[in-house]
Computed example of a mutant assay.
Amino acid sequence: MTLPPPALEHVCDLAVTIAPPVEVGQTPAGLRRMIPITGGTVTGPRLNGTVMAGGADFQLILNSGTQAHLDARYVIELDDGSRVFVQNTALRVASLENSQRIMNGQPVNPDEIYFRCQPKLEATAPQWAWLSDSQFIGSGRRTPDGVYLSFYRVL
């Protein structure tokens, strides 16, 4: 028996600013990079606030550079002062040419990049408990100076 697909509720959009990558290098697991998160904004129908500086996106680059496994961890400060811890894992797949452009900080056509994420949100205040009690998915777009994300609550 197949169950109906879950509905999605748009929660927010994030514009995350980043610093230049820290190249860790080739490890037995693959190419490792760390992208410092320097700030950003959160706007949307359910969440509004800022991305606090101090987070980072830890990347594992595979398949000659065409596949990136991302693990970003950062804190959002909501407009009411509450804080939310975010751990966002993602998969970004692109052609070799586009992957090299991304790694070199050059723009790419976002329509040519598969970038999907599974953010996990941990709330600190009771009014935001639903964030910890829900599943989320999202879409992403990488630009030379930042990352744009849209988060959706799975209903």
Rank of each mutant, 00 (worst) to 15 (best):
R83A: 09
N48M: 04
T38S: 14
A56R: 10
G81F: 08
A68R: 11
N48Y: 00
D80Y: 09
D79K: 00
E77K: 13
V84E: 00
A53L: 03
T38F: 09
A68F: 13
F85P: 06
V84G: 01
T41K: 02
E77T: 08
F85T: 10
D80H: 07
L62W: 04
L60I: 01
S64T: 11
A56G: 14
Q59F: 01
A72W: 01
N48V: 07
I37P: 09
G65S: 06
G81H: 04
D79Q: 08
V51N: 06
N63R: 14
P45A: 15
L78G: 04
T66C: 10
L78Q: 07
G39I: 10
G40W: 06
D57K: 10
L70I: 10
G44E: 03
N48P: 05
V42P: 00
A72Y: 00
G65E: 14
G40V: 10
D80Q: 06
I37G: 07
V42S: 00
Y74H: 03
D80C: 10
T50P: 01
S82H: 10
Y74W: 08
V84P: 08
L70V: 07
V75W: 05
D79I: 03
G44V: 11
Q59Y: 00
V42Q: 00
D57G: 11
G40Y: 13
G44Y: 05
E77C: 03
F85Y: 12
L78V: 04
D57A: 14
G40F: 09
L78I: 03
V84I: 15
T38P: 12
H69I: 12
A56H: 15
L47V: 08
V42W: 03
F85C: 06
F58M: 08
P45W: 05
P45G: 13
T43G: 01
G65R: 08
L62G: 05
V51A: 07
V75H: 02
L47F: 04
V84W: 04
D71P: 08
I76Y: 02
G54H: 03
R46G: 07
D79C: 05
R46W: 08
L60R: 03
V75S: 07
L62C: 13
G55M: 05
I76M: 12
R83F: 06
V75T: 14
I61Y: 00
N63S: 14
D80F: 09
N48K: 13
V84K: 00
M52Y: 08
G65K: 12
L70G: 06
G49I: 02
V51G: 13
G55T: 02
I37T: 07
A56F: 12
S64N: 15
G81Q: 09
T66D: 03
G55Q: 04
